[in-house]
Amino acid sequence: MEGWIALYIFMLAAFTGIEVIRRVPAILHTPLMSGSNFIHGIVVVGGMVVLGMADTTAEIIVGFIAVFLGAGNAVGGYVVTERMLEMFKSSGTKPEKKD
């Protein structure tokens, strides 16, 4: 990819990241860290691509590890975030009893 285009993408993405987070209340810091943790789980896609390209045993083993770790990041990150968020209820909605 053309280096300058990549640099522009990086720059714009960085500003997006900062703007999206800037006015977040402290109450959401932990869920947000967990949520962004989930989003970088997209690395699993990169893992799949390199595993799909791998030929030698070493490449396949390391590629397998990449997919395994990436998928763990994505799924674990999602479940952890979801578990935290499902607990946030306003006093307007009656808190349902869970068992």
């Binding site: 993405a13 989003i39 997209i42």
Partner: peptide
Amino acid sequence: LMIAGIVVGAA
């Protein structure tokens, strides 16, 4: 990947 990664990196 670039966008998701850098957004998370900056945030």
